[in-house]
Design a protein around this nucleic acid. Structure first.
Lengths: 111, 111
DNA sequence: CCATCACATGCCCGCATGAATATATATCCT
DNA sequence: AGGATATATATTCATGCGGGCATGTGATGG
């Protein structure tokens, strides 16, 4: 199962903040700098990483660099997380944590 | 928008590997050690982090420590990612590849 | 009790990573 | 052309984190 480094990118709060700021659409670097508390080089660096991983796209308009969300990598991460949907479903349905409804591999379940 | 450190936890491949090994249900520490290439202390440490963040639950049976998936934190991450669903939908429908950074297998629409 | 098993913790080290400053490149304006 | 704007890159530094080994703690069995 190839798991990209998307989670690695998402692990940084400031990077997530940038991605959140891009939810409304294209943004220039300066816009993004204003919406954060980071320095411009810091923002540029993070945008570089996000671009290299395919999470954002870059379009140049004059001297402005407009970044926008690129959905595919998110989808991969989302699919990985999808495997755990059933767990939180059980979580609120049954208060117990005896998940033993499936695959009683080696774990001996006590009553 | 409070974003927990779930993504931080998910950023480590070995941690994801542990979580994948727990998809089938409860596992003891030794089981998990066998399913990875890590040493037992390394596994224990990672399990500690996962437990502290609420991603796994611990149940002690004798001298065995059984860990299992705890779905709620996954849900939070999943919800965050949900905001980007629309982007990958657009991604394959519209959006030409004239960003000039990647190789467009299919240039342009079909004529 | 004592040896052993199962697991956790503490300490140490090497490396990746984040941030700040300074500088380079590209574009626009006059 | 020259200067200002917009963004990128380079360098440096400090910190964090993963991962090893040794050791500590609790449970089991003789």
């Amino acid at each position: 199962m190839p798991m990209p480094d998307v989670f690695q990118l998402l692990s940084d709060p400031s990077r997530r903040h940038l991605l959140e700021a891009l939810r409304d659409g294209e943004r220039s670097v300066n816009d993004l700098v204003d919406s954060t508390q980071m320095s411009q080089p810091a923002v540029s660096k993070k945008l570089r990483l996000l671009k290299d991983s395919g999470m954002v796209a870059l379009r140049k308009d004059g001297r402005q660099h407009l970044y926008s969300i690129r959905g595919q990598p998110f989808r991969e991460a989302s699919e990985w997380l999808g495997f755990y949907d059933r767990f939180w479903q059980e979580g609120l349905a049954r208060m117990d944590e005896l998940i033993g409804s499936e695959v009683p591999r080696r774990s001996r379940r006590k009553t």
